[in-house]
């Protein structure tokens, strides 16, 4: 049976087509603005092509993410937390927590024994846009996102940027560059700031289990962040390949229910 999950995020659309329990196709593209629904539909058709199945061949399509209501071609929509929980169980049979770190939002979902969601946490506004902030900082420092993902916080060598506010952090970073601090040290400081913020949101309600937590979302591709976060939080996150597709995969799984 084929199902599809469409995650329309603030920055990117992610689509996953599942054939039973295997990924038949996965695609991503920038969301854009008001046209994101149409763009998601075009991407969906492309994904179908890749998966070698037609629209009729799909049992059910569920949309999720910030733009879930724009996917009027989908059969329905679900909230991201439910998708995250389903995805976590897919990647780890007895997962008790799902953490998703995206361009805009960070979520922590507690999963009960039966797989149902028991608690949810979303980041507070001061922590909005961590993924975006990392991307923009990388661009400013003239690193690719892959390059900045290889610069650990230790490279900062004691230099720090404010870890309470991303706006202050950016100003601090510019000031560091202004006084001649090398750019990789600044990158390390920004990564450290990111990890400190993430560590705090993990502690908002239920603290995720050390051995039963799955991490997804675009930022989970950043080794420097995930290594440092593991060290700081003490959680040994299970990070799947292509973690940015986690929520979309979860939606596709729920579409099979």
């Amino acid at each position: 049976m084929y199902t599809a999950g469409i995650d329309i995020g603030l920055e990117n659309i992610k689509i996953v087509i599942l054939k039973d329990a295997s990924v038949a196709a996965s695609l991503t593209a920038p969301s854009g603005g008001k046209e994101r629904g149409k763009r998601a539909e075009a991407l969906y058709d492309e994904a179908l092509l890749r998966a070698g199945v037609s629209r009729n061949g799909i049992h059910r399509t569920l949309a999720t993410g910030a733009g879930k209501f724009d996917a009027d071609f989908a059969d329905g929509n679900i909230v991201e937390e439910i998708a995250d929980a389903a995805a976590a169980r897919y990647f780890l049979k007895d997962a008790s927590a799902a953490v998703d770190i995206g361009a805009d939002q960070t979520r922590v979902v507690s999963i009960g024994a039966d797989g149902a969601v028991t608690e949810t946490v979303r980041n507070q506004k001061c922590m909005a846009g961590l993924g975006l902030a990392l991307e923009y900082m990388a661009e400013r420092l003239d690193f690719s996102i892959e390059e900045i993902s290889l610069i650990p916080p230790e490279r900062a060598e004691g230099v720090t940027v404010n870890d309470g506010c991303p706006v202050f952090a950016e100003l601090d970073a510019l000031e560091l560059l202004n006084i001649g601090v090398p750019r990789d040290a600044v990158a390390g400081a920004v990564t450290r700031m990111t990890v400190v913020r993430l560590n705090s949101v993990l502690r908002d309600k239920d603290f995720p289990d050390r051995n039963r937590t799955v991490l997804t979302g675009g930022v989970a591709k950043n080794r420097a962040v995930t290594d440092a976060l593991k060290a700081l939080s003490g959680i040994d996150f299970v990070i799947p390949e292509s973690p940015e597709y986690g929520t979309a995969l979860g939606a596709a799984l729920k579409a099979a229910d």
Partner: peptide, 28 residues
Amino acid sequence: TCCNFMYPETMGLLRQGFREDEYSENDV
């Protein structure tokens, strides 16, 4: 208050709230 609050709230206007709250791109 803050540009870091501005962007998610701005983008959030694209989400359908109540039916009467449809925002065009120019409104956003």
